[in-house]
Amino acid sequence: MEKNIEILANRDELIDRALDILLAKITEALQTRNQFTIALAGGSTPKPLYEALAQQPLPWNQIHVFWGDERYVSPDHPDSNQLMARRAWLDQVNFPATHIHPIPTAANNPRADAEQYNRELEQFFDLHAGEFPTFDVVLLGMGDDAHTASLFPHTEALTVEDRLITVGDKDGQPRLTFTVPLINHARCVMFLVTGANKQEPLAAVFASKADAMTYPSRLIQPVGELWWLLDAAAGANLT
């Protein structure tokens, strides 16, 4: 694993840096594999990154978009990660509908929808049983409890190693999420973290020893590159 930690002056500079890295990864993937795959994060932090992507003259027909996690709500719900990304980016450009791969939430059965997305990933990446896909980029955020995707502290989802998608639990509310081994198979994982309320969890995530069940972001150790992009408020106490 190649680990990179950068502290940027503010959120705008963080987004600019994230865009630069992402555009480089897109160029590299298209040159070597003729296709780029990305798993998006939810929350407010990546929204300006998606808006910036919408301004780029990219070959959308060579890009496939997935989501690393999703709240168990309808696609038109205000809390939907899919809805946010569509409004900020995907609906703003001529993006092929068949290249958008949202997490299903319509079965009224989170485990059934998790299995459906699991099958979609297996088919798209042409996987055999027990294999994990290799995303070009997985975007992640981190909460003030050190959760990432929908991998929350002391929840069963943290221990799932034999599936691509599992059901996460946020205060009794189901969410669908990439599993830890799926994230860790990515060529590049990029955390975008802002705000002074992230100082304490970051200290634990970067500590030489800490409990990963308490600080789930510690579990993210990809085979490829790991980027932590922090604004000055989040990274104030790091050396």
Results as ranks from 00 to 15, higher is better:
118 N>W: 14
199 Q>F: 05
147 H>E: 10
62 Q>K: 14
167 V>T: 12
134 T>H: 15
19 L>E: 08
150 S>P: 07
105 T>D: 08
96 P>C: 03
194 T>R: 01
184 N>I: 14
23 L>P: 01
11 R>N: 11
9 A>Y: 12
113 D>Y: 00
167 V>Y: 10
135 F>M: 10
219 L>P: 06
103 I>E: 02
212 A>C: 13
86 R>L: 08
81 N>Y: 07
191 F>Q: 10
168 G>H: 07
85 A>H: 01
89 W>Q: 03
141 G>K: 01
213 M>H: 03
239 T>Q: 01
61 N>L: 06
73 V>P: 05
11 R>P: 01
234 A>T: 08
165 I>G: 05
37 T>F: 14
43 G>R: 04
101 H>C: 00
180 V>T: 06
195 G>E: 09
216 P>I: 03
199 Q>G: 01
146 A>K: 08
24 A>R: 10
228 W>D: 03
79 D>T: 04
90 L>T: 00
140 L>K: 09
139 L>G: 04
128 H>W: 06
139 L>F: 05
35 Q>K: 14
217 S>Q: 11
239 T>C: 03
113 D>R: 00
22 L>R: 01
189 V>I: 15
96 P>N: 00
204 A>H: 15
45 T>E: 03
88 A>T: 09
67 W>G: 01
87 R>A: 01
81 N>Q: 13
110 P>W: 09
229 L>G: 06
57 P>K: 12
209 K>Y: 13
69 D>H: 04
166 T>G: 15
203 A>C: 05
215 Y>W: 15
37 T>A: 10
77 H>G: 03
20 D>H: 12
140 L>V: 10
97 A>N: 06
79 D>Y: 03
228 W>F: 15
25 K>Q: 11
136 D>P: 07
116 Q>W: 12
159 T>Y: 10
31 Q>F: 05
214 T>E: 12
110 P>N: 12
57 P>D: 14
59 P>K: 15
19 L>V: 02
182 L>R: 06
181 P>E: 12
228 W>E: 05
109 N>R: 00
101 H>Y: 05
208 S>R: 07
149 A>V: 11
107 A>S: 15
3 K>D: 08
64 H>N: 08
196 A>R: 02
186 A>V: 14
27 T>S: 13
16 D>F: 05
